[in-house]
Amino acid sequence: MKLTLRVWRQKNPDTPGAMATYELDGVSQDMSFLEMLDVLNEELIVKGEEPVAFDHDCREGICGACSLVINGDAHGPERTTTCQLHMRSFRDGDTIDIEPWRASAFPVIKDLVVDRSAFDRVIQAGGFITAPTGSAPEAHATPVPKADADYAFEHAECIGCGACVAACPNGAAMLFTSAKVNHLNVLPQGSPERETRVLDMVAQMDAEGFGGCTLAGECATACPKGIPLFSITAMNKEWLRASRKVKR
């Protein structure tokens, strides 16, 4: 395959960036998208140019490190992570636009790498339980109804990649925050902090400068783990309940 790549190049957070065009030949359909970028970078290094910086880690679709907006879609045209996207999803001669996540809360560090530590601070604000966990607890000590366990697991699937923020027309982190809130709020282990968790995490989400929800639904469409849009509805319900219950 022969491709024309238009890639966002930005030296550092303070220098304005621009799209740069590269021609890449000899791409196999069996390559993953990141392997295709590896090939591009090898060519750039041989030519003595600066390789394109991009985030990646496990390349198995489970860590949430990779983060590319490909032709306007977070993680590209398939419903998966960028690392699990393969070049067979493109055609010979295609022009592919590759951009970083765009959000004021996710500033660009270099090229396609953005700083997602805003997500870490949202987690720190309440995405944990304070019960000592130590060694594995006795499995039958805390009964969890099957439906609740399934619901918690559905939300625990969130890998915090930030595709929801990248896809949202408002740069909102509602889907991410709701996945974390719902995951713990439905379980007995998470119930002592049920109210403060949702209030603190939403407050931190706002403080990080993420936008608000307009129910466009783009986040749930982009999510590689299939977190449903109704997670946001459920978080709204939790927040409303908590703000009535907790007096601060």
């Binding site: 951009e99 765009r102 004021s104 408002n170 740069g171 400068g209 936008g211």
Partner: peptide, 11 residues
């Protein structure tokens, strides 16, 4: 919302 996405996507 507009402030949260200061740089628009090219594509």
């Amino acid at each position: 919302d507009i402030k949260a996405r200061p740089q628009k996507y090219v594509h």
